[in-house]
Design a protein around this nucleic acid. Structure first.
Lengths: 203, 203
DNA sequence: AGTCATAAATGACCGTGGTCATATTTAAGC
DNA sequence: GCTTAAATATGACCACGGTCATTTATGACT
């Protein structure tokens, strides 16, 4: 790696680290780009050579999280355990991972303008790059299919529908937890709701 | 009502109507407060006498929606039909109501900084005013309890948990629909997922 | 080492949301 | 109709996010 690339990487990283620290200290709105650049020892314009907007710092943070989450998913996918356990394990692992950094997650979901969610209903035309969220639901759908083949899950429902329902519960639990001011286990709360989906509420 | 109050109300309304129109025409970011005040024939400062921020226009819009939704809820609550039907009716009615104005809802959810969601996990101390979202979940919980008493719903689960799970599916379906670029029936999509919750996915 | 094209850094500048001291309007009391 | 205090309107002003023409640093090539 050339000196140039090296320095670029370092600068980008410095901006990012300083930003997250300041966000934690003073909030997202309360931190100005001027402060960030001053601390990083660069001019204001330079910031925008590295990140197109102040908000994009949060996107970058999210991308890093997503990489990690996908690795958790893939770990679970390959294990030799009942599908229900795989699903619960996966979701609980993600939840536990999130529990470590509630504050920055709050920023991520409440400060970022467009919080991406998977639609499950894509336009048939369009770019073919899979978004991370779709991968998330896609993997849950794969697990559901696997469960159907093994006779662990009802096979008269569209696996995608099941995946979306699971994801709904996961997402809702996450949001509730982020909004709440009290401390409780997000993963346990979610786990209870996943059980409902498996067992149904009907008599 | 005095002349003063009358004019105040009119001005507030004019600002609001013009704003929503401009948002539809040019988007939220694309519309400036200057434009709004110019069209409304008032000075810029006056705008902020009526709405504390530009974003608060969206909150106001949401409050209006919420009033309406609560009335739908209350209608269903008092009918003499099976609980499952009440729940489905209620959620489907809300969905159908939303389907009428997808664009402004998108603004509401994607442009507004902090999109409120019910936690279901409130701090024990704090203000006692019930937020609208809690009312929403509260009513779903009441319906669940009713269903348990009538033997239509399993009674070994906390009704609140059921309510939250139902709300999760409702909210997720709504968000997916708002994100999607294609036209499909949000209410039907949601309905299918509600069925899953009633019947479970286990064998 | 010197030249030069390209990458990267810079900060004056702009448009916007939001503030606030001041000016204007209202209506109650006389 | 006049006075006066409170409600309301005003626009100059500020801070911030973001742009861009210009300057500076880099390294490939001779």
């Amino acid at each position: 790696m050339s000196l140039r690339e090296q320095k670029k990487k370092e600068t980008r990283n410095r901006i990012f680290e300083i930003s997250l620290r300041l966000f934690k200290e003073k909030g997202f709105e309360g931190t100005t780009v001027d402060e960030i650049t001053k601390e990083a020892g660069i001019a204001k314009g330079t910031f925008f050579n590295y990140f197109p907007t102040k908000e994009s710092l949060l996107s970058y943070f999210r991308e890093q999280r997503e990489e990690f989450i996908i690795s958790i998913m893939q770990d679970q996918m390959s294990r030799e355990i009942p599908v229900r356990e795989k699903i619960e394990n996966f979701l609980v692992h993600v939840a536990e991972y999130y529990e470590k950094d509630r504050y920055l997650l709050r920023l991520l979901f409440f400060e970022q303008r467009r919080l991406l969610m998977s639609s499950g209903h894509r336009p048939s035309q369009g770019d073919h790059r899979k978004k991370k969220q779709e991968l998330f639901i896609g993997m849950l759908a794969d697990l559901s299919s696997e469960g159907m083949q093994k006779g662990e899950i009802r096979s008269d429902i569209d696996p995608k529908l099941i995946a979306q329902t699971l994801h709904a519960v996961y997402f809702h639990s996450l949001m509730s937890w982020l909004h709440s001011e009290i401390d409780y286990s997000f993963s346990k709360d979610m786990s209870a709701k996943i059980d409902i989906i498996f067992e149904g509420i009907g008599v």
